[in-house]
Design a protein around this nucleic acid. Structure first.
Lengths: 185, 185
DNA sequence: GAGGATCCCTTAACACCTGTAAAGTGAGTG
DNA sequence: CACTCACTTTACAGGTGTTAAGGGATCCTC
């Protein structure tokens, strides 16, 4: 019962993922480097992906799946709408900061569409707070958008990695959620 | 009095700037393409910059100078601390959205230090509002940071350019400033 | 169990682009 | 005239994505 090696396709995706992380951006990674990292030669890639762009797309899709899963897991921990909203936001920034370059690629140029879907979850979470009388929001969609925007800013700036003496992550997120989702109403 | 052609050095910087914008990221532009755009051959660059990286650094430095100038001009329009804060924030997002790729490079990985300086201006602006009793902020430094973070999010997400039906930019910024700088106290 | 087909991968090669160094060229200045 | 400076031409040594042809293991069929 020896361990079967992971199928090449997924090995390529994860190799590409760590390469992207190491290089800091998707267009600094080459198909050949990915193949090397996965222990195969370059043309082997073409058996699983149409071309380099398709491979990188797969990395990002995987990222969106991970993000949804991470948020879902965090949110599942409670039934209280405010706690759920806060937990989801924490999970979001945690995801982004765990793999900044991939996050940047996910929400960078020309790739928002997939991200918009995750956004719907956030709208519902804010709306749930409002419905429960825990938020003064009269326009959950708009307030969720502001919140998402701010969370994106948190991830992007911290990921930029200046030495910057940032305040504790969790507290900062808590404040943003409170002020932008108008909690405590 | 014929028009003297711009000196090569600055022609290279602006050529590089528009190339970056067109390519969407700094590491998608080549030294040769920049030289071509500026109407010279590649080695001519080395008379003005140590190497490609130095040229791109110059583009970003230029960007920071433009940003400071833009904010200063906007802020100069009024003596009211709140109006000044709001005008500065509008100028900030306008700058970012005018050249998204350059903005991204400026505040992307490993390049925050220069950005932190512009941040000081924002802290002062929030503090001024608090001092004038126009903001309830008790920690201007921290609230300015939240505000900057959110503004960065605005620029980054909108620049990502999903078709996304964003709400009007100015109103969104106004709300963020009001809620994060705790205006109306 | 042998023969043959099927699948995945490898080796080889293409055409092209990259950053950069060395040497050459021509105009402007003393 | 000679010198300097700014640029060009040439060249190198590599890396790029991608295609075409070859090889070897595995599995199905007889």
């Amino acid at each position: 019962m020896t361990k079967t090696p992971a199928p090449l396709r997924s090995r390529l995706i994860s190799a590409a993922g760590s390469l992207v992380e190491r290089a800091g951006s998707t267009d600094a990674v080459s198909l050949r480097a990915i193949a090397r990292e996965a222990g195969v030669t370059a043309p082997a890639v073409y058996g699983h992906f149409a071309d380099l762009e398709a491979l990188l797309d797969a990395v990002l899709d995987q990222g969106f799946a991970d993000l949804r899963a991470g948020i879902a897991a965090a949110v599942a921990g409670s039934a209280d709408p405010v706690e759920r909203l806060v937990a989801g936001c924490h999970a979001y920034v945690r995801f982004g900061l765990a793999a900044p370059a991939r996050y940047r690629a996910m929400f960078g140029p020309r790739r928002l569409p997939s991200g918009q879907r995750a956004f719907a979850v956030l709208v519902d979470a804010v709306a749930a707070c409002a419905a429960a009388g825990r938020s003064r929001s009269t326009d959950p969609r708009e307030d969720a958008r502001l919140l998402w925007t701010a969370l994106h800013g948190v991830v992007a700036l911290r990921a930029a990695g200046g030495d910057a003496d940032w305040p504790p992550l969790e507290e900062q997120v808590d404040v943003l959620v409170a002020r932008l989702a108008l909690l405590g109403g």
